[in-house]
Amino acid sequence: MRVSVPAAISVRGLTMAYGDYVVMRDLDFDIHPGDIFIIMGGSGCGKSTLMRNMVGLEEPAAGEVFHGGKSFTRADEIERRRMLRSFGVMYQGGALWTAMTLAENVGLPLGEYTELSAAEIREVAVLKLALVGLRGFEDHLPSEISGGMQKRAAIARAMALDPAILFLDEPSAGLDPISARLLDDLILELRASLGTTVVIVTHELASIFTVADDSVFLDPASKTMLAVGNPRELRDHGDPRVRRFLTRGEDTSEGRALA
């Protein structure tokens, strides 16, 4: 049991809303250190919004997010900036800064948060890019490389400061099956070698079953979470909506009682 270890992230009673429109309410779950945690659910159900709440790009309408036992939601600006240093975020489209080369993209957070010299920053950036298989592309601009490479470069940037928690928003969306598989392998490899906690927003089942340790399932109709747990085990979950999602709609039985 992992009960004794404090959670890397705890979400408590979280309600997210845009104005009066409630996206999700009453979310409660823990993400354990070193786990690969999946936020899953149908398209447009608020998965990315949940991630944006967890990294402070949106403020919760109610409830709190804790990082390492400390409230992130209620932290002041200085405390928050300190906490931000321990996350890396990869956005859906990569969101690399288009005016900068890959090495400059990876180097910018290093320049911001460390005392390293320009040459040292470059050295670290080269390493991070090599880790995601982009050795030799340091001086390319984001527009000069393929979509899959942009996503990997974005992961390299997210890992620039060796974050304790890596957030990935739809890492395999828009990638061909082989590139998607390579990305999954990369995520597993990074977790194994660095012990990083990884939070992934996705609805790609193949990817979910390959990498996940734990997950939360969001349902847009009831506007809340329906299940927490390992996705492979959730295939037998009591709620037919969860089972249908995880079996691509094949399991349509309503037989079991709601858990």
């Binding site: 402070g56 931000l84 975020v89 956005y91 911001e112």
Partner: peptide, 12 residues
């Protein structure tokens, strides 16, 4: 393209 979000989460 969320490049501004990327700056914000880096604390810039």
């Amino acid at each position: 393209t969320q490049e501004i979000d990327a700056l914000e989460t880096l604390g810039l």
